[in-house]
Simulated assay, not measured.
Amino acid sequence: MVINMNKRIWPLNDRAITVSFGEEIDVQINLRVQQLFSSLKRESYPFIVDMVPTYTNLTIYFDPQKINFKDMQQLIEEALNDMHEHPVSIESKLVHIPVYYNGPELERVAKQNQLTEDDVMRIHGREDYLIYMIGFLPGFPYLGGLDERIATPRLDEPKSQVEAGSVGVANQQTGIYPIQSPGGWNIIGHTPVNIFDSQKEQPFMFQAGDYIQFYPVDRKTYDHIINDDQYQPKMEWYHAN
């Protein structure tokens, strides 16, 4: 696959540089973000402190005592040129997440779109959702690709508390609340899977560039999984080029 290398590079501060590939939420733009992220990560440069991929940008934090901005910019340009000549293969996970569709806004989403609740469940569970980025909570996956038939505006008044594991939709996105927090998304269900565990060496179940597929479960299965300390969701490799 030959990628269009339209991009913009600018300093975020004296120890961070941002590379932007566009301004739209788009699979191909995000793929370029993930390709640059993967390319730099594989090199394990000692002067790169952290990298944060978003929908359209990659911000690279570096140690200014080990490399200056000009050299960092040149290294990025070289990585981009190499990507153009030799496209990077992205190896991602596809994680299958069970959902008990019992959310308080399931009826609202159905009525908003002139559907039945069963229609919402069926449509929501039919896609492989790309994780464009992680935030605003630790491990919160922003998922693109929500079918327009169930796209629903955020709540007019956010709730003071949304429980961990809540699966929601907001406009043309869907996501999972990893911890209890305030929120304004339409909650259509809950997953028994703990997607964030601060006690683990790798606290996040997935990262930007991975994919999630939801599937419905009944209350009995939900309770069984939530009480099973050994439960692990099905995962498989998902290859994007």
Score class of each variant (00 low, 15 high):
residue 110 A to H: 03
residue 105 E to S: 12
residue 108 R to Q: 12
residue 122 R to Q: 14
residue 155 L to G: 04
residue 176 I to D: 03
residue 173 Q to N: 10
residue 214 F to Y: 15
residue 191 T to Q: 01
residue 177 Y to I: 00
residue 215 Y to L: 09
residue 125 G to L: 10
residue 108 R to M: 10
residue 208 A to H: 01
residue 157 E to N: 15
residue 172 Q to S: 14
residue 116 T to M: 06
residue 187 I to S: 02
residue 218 D to K: 09
residue 186 N to L: 10
residue 172 Q to M: 12
residue 198 S to M: 11
residue 145 G to F: 09
residue 194 N to A: 13
residue 173 Q to R: 12
residue 133 M to A: 10
residue 139 G to D: 05
residue 177 Y to M: 05
residue 98 P to V: 08
residue 155 L to Q: 14
residue 121 M to Y: 02
residue 105 E to F: 04
residue 139 G to C: 08
residue 206 F to Q: 08
residue 108 R to F: 12
residue 191 T to P: 01
residue 149 R to T: 11
residue 104 P to H: 13
residue 133 M to N: 00
residue 104 P to N: 14
residue 220 K to T: 13
residue 163 E to A: 13
residue 179 I to E: 11
residue 135 G to A: 04
residue 212 I to M: 10
residue 175 G to W: 04
residue 116 T to R: 10
residue 208 A to E: 02
residue 116 T to V: 03
residue 127 E to Q: 15
residue 111 K to T: 14
residue 215 Y to Q: 05
residue 184 G to D: 04
residue 136 F to A: 09
residue 192 P to V: 07
residue 150 I to G: 05
residue 96 H to M: 13
residue 102 N to D: 15
residue 209 G to R: 02
residue 110 A to F: 03
residue 186 N to W: 09
residue 215 Y to T: 06
residue 220 K to H: 13
residue 204 F to L: 15
residue 116 T to I: 03
residue 213 Q to V: 08
residue 94 L to D: 01
residue 152 T to V: 08
residue 142 Y to G: 12
residue 141 P to N: 01
residue 150 I to Y: 09
residue 206 F to R: 00
residue 166 S to C: 09
residue 127 E to T: 12
residue 113 N to G: 06
residue 195 I to K: 04
residue 100 Y to T: 02
residue 143 L to V: 03
residue 160 S to G: 11
residue 169 V to R: 03
residue 163 E to V: 10
residue 160 S to W: 11
residue 157 E to I: 15
residue 202 Q to R: 10
residue 115 L to T: 04
residue 142 Y to Q: 03
residue 136 F to T: 06
residue 205 M to Y: 09
residue 208 A to M: 04
residue 111 K to N: 13
residue 127 E to M: 13
residue 191 T to R: 03
residue 149 R to E: 12
residue 161 Q to N: 14
residue 137 L to F: 08
residue 149 R to H: 12
residue 98 P to T: 07
residue 130 L to W: 05
residue 201 E to N: 13
residue 144 G to R: 00
residue 187 I to A: 01
residue 140 F to T: 05
residue 109 V to P: 00
residue 205 M to I: 13
residue 140 F to M: 07
residue 217 V to H: 02
residue 116 T to N: 10
residue 113 N to Q: 08
residue 103 G to T: 11
residue 116 T to H: 04
residue 120 V to P: 05
residue 207 Q to F: 13
residue 199 Q to G: 02
residue 157 E to L: 15
residue 184 G to A: 07
residue 209 G to Q: 03
residue 198 S to L: 10
residue 174 T to I: 06
residue 109 V to G: 02
residue 148 E to P: 08
residue 127 E to K: 15
residue 117 E to L: 00
residue 137 L to P: 05
residue 146 L to V: 08
residue 148 E to H: 14
residue 117 E to C: 10
residue 143 L to M: 15
residue 137 L to A: 04
residue 103 G to D: 10
residue 104 P to L: 11
residue 112 Q to K: 11
residue 123 I to H: 05
residue 152 T to N: 07
residue 132 Y to M: 00
residue 117 E to S: 10
residue 155 L to H: 07
residue 116 T to L: 09
residue 163 E to K: 15
residue 207 Q to A: 15
residue 166 S to Y: 06
residue 181 S to L: 07
residue 219 R to M: 13
residue 189 G to Y: 02
residue 113 N to I: 08
residue 138 P to F: 03
residue 153 P to T: 06
